[in-house]
Design a protein around this nucleic acid. Structure first.
Lengths: 247, 247
DNA sequence: ATATAAGATTACGTTACGTCACTTTCAAGT
DNA sequence: ACTTGAAAGTGACGTAACGTAATCTTATAT
């Protein structure tokens, strides 16, 4: 028989926890001294370890109490239920992770994020429903829809998206140098190569894409990555210079 | 200006929630009627959507309150912190998932799981520390240690493990037929083929493995999948028959 | 004017303890 | 036997984000 302090030293749980387990009748002490001090034996240590283990699996104390007291507890059902719950949680966590990474991506572009911008994003995330697909189907045909998936997605951290985003960041950085500056022209060049590489030389597709891009409302409805108007203008202007030089 | 009921209809949150948000001063109504009924405007709807969005990212209300009120809130730091937290949670969830799957695997073998068995498992899980590696390194050399990783692991659901486990289940099922019965001999045959396939013809390795297997304490220290003594005996006996027949 | 729906306030319940505040018991030294 | 300091006890409040219930008041439709 050991004291409560000894028990906590051996198991790492707190005194308060042991008293709580006693209170809810999950793990009462083996006995008490005349003065009322709790005394524990080996059996309680074992049970405490079982409790700790089950707790680490995410079970709640009330469930653990049932498991350990009910002699005919169906472990298979219990464990399967818990697994289902955990799998759901996992999905939720993964979704949050993707969204957070997406937000951090956009932060690279908008280096000052204010609430109006957050608001735009919220609308984007909340409009991720059938509506988007309706517009998507309206503007693009079968083959083009596959290409759309290669566009940078806000909630993605794949290299493609990151590359496009870095171009936008650079554009913003050198905006003040003008659309015909070597810096901007260099970026446009890279973007052009990347686009050809990814989508092929598909003028019709590009034109449609650009038409939508130039309309903020359509972009939003389509679930496109939000790009500010002045950057869009810059791209258009710089692209004119770039094409003239090539021909 | 709309009533609280109208707001909840439009946004899906509960009346209680709105009153609570008012109480903690996160989202007070735009105004009140003479009678004291809360009235909300478009601005509040927007803010409520922001709150819902941030809540879906796992932020707590007190944090959201700060984010939305502090004009100079550093979104990058905030989002990064949250991402770190989420990544930690993800690791925890994945660990739980693995353990639960492992437990469910063992359930297939021990179709009646009592507390003594859970206890064995707890010891196994809790001894997953340096101790294990010390013993591992003591008994096996470099090349053999690689082979060890191909043994069935309790917390894994890869096909290898599942196959070994199914053999053990079958052995248990046909135990009563005797070590020399065709059923048992068939299983031993499959196990033999699988072993050769996985580990090659490595007699020294097998002997060491078997030596440890026959000692429950060593098995435990090594973190091996716990197999009952009578099944071990059955395997040994059946193996003798099998070898005699082959030669 | 009245019935009824909608709204307000107040307060307790939830989880698994942490953290006081205050009192009592234990074990050891004198 | 007496003292004393450490350890232990009990009781209470706080936590997060509401759900739920009880009771009272206001708004609205007939």
């Amino acid at each position: 028989m050991i004291s409560i302090k000894e028990l906590t030293k051996q198991t790492g749980v707190s005194v308060r926890t042991m008293r709580y387990y006693d209170e809810i009748n999950l793990l009462p002490p083996a006995g008490k001294t005349e003065g009322g001090h709790r005394l524990y034996s080996e059996k309680e240590i074992k049970k405490l370890q079982e409790i700790q283990f089950l707790k680490s699996l995410g079970f709640r104390l009330i469930e653990i109490k049932e498991m350990l007291s009910d002699k005919n507890w169906d472990w298979e059902i219990g464990l399967k239920n818990q697994l289902n719950y955990i799998l759901q949680e996992k999905q939720r966590i993964i979704q949050i992770e993707k969204t957070l990474k997406g937000l951090l991506n956009t932060l690279k572009i908008e280096n000052s994020v204010d609430l109006t911008y957050i608001n735009k994003l919220i609308q984007l995330y909340q409009s991720k429903n059938e509506q988007q697909n309706i517009f998507r189907d309206k503007y693009f045909h079968q083959g083009e829809r596959k290409l759309l998936n290669k566009l940078p997605k806000m909630d993605s951290d794949d290299p493609h998206s990151l590359e496009w985003i870095s171009y936008l960041v650079d554009l913003k950085k050198f905006k003040h140098k003008g659309a015909n500056s070597p810096e901007i022209q260099q970026i446009i060049h890279c973007m052009y190569e990347k686009a050809i590489d990814t989508f092929g030389e598909n003028d019709d597709f590009f034109n449609k894409l650009w038409e939508i891009r130039k309309s903020p409302e359509k972009s939003t409805k389509m679930g496109f990555y939000p790009i500010e108007q002045d950057i869009l203008n810059l791209i258009e202007e710089a692209w004119d210079f770039y094409e003239n030089k090539r021909h």
